[in-house]
Design a protein around this nucleic acid. Structure first.
Lengths: 195, 195
DNA sequence: CCTACCGATCGGTAGG
DNA sequence: CCTACCGATCGGTAGG
């Protein structure tokens, strides 16, 4: 009855999850197929009935993370919002993705460099697309005289999150995002005119 | 005549330089001793008359970078400056260190995690010390109601630099630093009172 | 998914 | 700094 072709394959998903965890914490090159096998309860060689190579594993992880990030921003782009609210929602979306899987976010932002050939180029294109979505959001802000630097500033804050964020901390992802948005919008300097 | 004990050893410095370049671009685990040997014109085994292990190599690179970053901020702390000017000078100092050696800066910020045992703890302490120096600078700013997040925002902007900065780009390190400082102080939002 | 294994490469050493 | 080598581990495969 059930079509057999491309079913969810929960075993493969489990392998992807464990691999993302290990790639995120130790790095791609520091993680062996034996490590991944151990984390999923099988031997290294057995992994190859679910995936085709170590690089294929990395590619799938990065690709999924890229789409998660991109879809979040594309949904927001379609909404009718003030520039400030759009920034706020975008920051929330980004931090939510990071918080949901800090390791995958790290892999998307750094370990993708271990990919080679066409896979690497594909990811590079997706990364550029995500940056351009941020460009569009930042460019609308009235205070952004220099949109490229403004985008770099916003994305750096958003991305630095996974170097310190811990899911068991006291702040929710939305709270973290909002504090950054508030700081970014208001600035750290003295207000020239106090009310 | 010349004392022989701990002379500069220029050969070792060259090895450290090439290793920093490779660790920064490919990562510590992706770089082999044969790669480093190749970059310095010798065979892998010959490296061991200058250094004691691969991890020792990483440790020396990270340690030097840590001290360069820390000394920059400590010098500024001693000066008599307004909070805004101190932030500006600190950002310039940080970006200058990054720009002088993007690869070493990357290694200091990420590859140090490949260290083990006491070496790892030592670097962790130095990293914390650097963060606390930034805390001190940020806390003085009148707009920083939330000093921890303000420091995270400032350091994230400062640190994200090495993911995109290229020494052959059109902007000098000081120009890059100043744009970030201006954006951080003024904010990206609408000014409530336009003059 | 395991047994058993492959060639390649790893960090590092002995001896000169 | 080279020659020559070490045991360990790597990603991956054949055959069941």
């Amino acid at each position: 009855m059930a079509v057999k072709t491309s079913t969810p394959t929960p075993r493969r998903d489990q392998i992807l999850e464990e691999a993302a965890r290990l790639f995120g914490r130790r790095g791609y090159h520091a993680t062996s197929m034996r490590d991944i096998g151990g984390a999923t309860g099988m031997l290294a060689g057995s992994l190859y009935s679910h995936i085709s190579s170590k690089e294929d594993l990395l590619h799938r992880i990065v690709l999924e993370a890229a789409h998660t990030f991109i879809e979040g921003l594309e949904a927001i782009r379609a909404e009718d919002l003030t520039p400030e609210d759009r920034l706020r929602k975008a920051m929330r979306a980004h931090v939510a993705v990071v918080a949901a899987d800090v390791d995958a976010a790290w892999v998307f932002n750094h370990e993708w460099k271990a990919l080679t050939g066409e896979r690497r180029e594909e990811i590079r294109r997706l990364r550029r697309r995500y940056e351009r979505l941020w460009d569009g959001i930042v460019r609308e802000l009235p205070g952004a005289a220099d949109p490229r630097f403004a985008r770099l500033l916003v994305l750096s804050a958003a991305n630095w999150t996974y170097t310190w964020y811990r899911p068991d901390g006291p702040l929710s992802p939305d709270e973290v995002a909002d504090r950054f948005t508030d700081l970014l919008l208001a600035g750290l300097g003295t207000k020239e005119e106090e009310r």
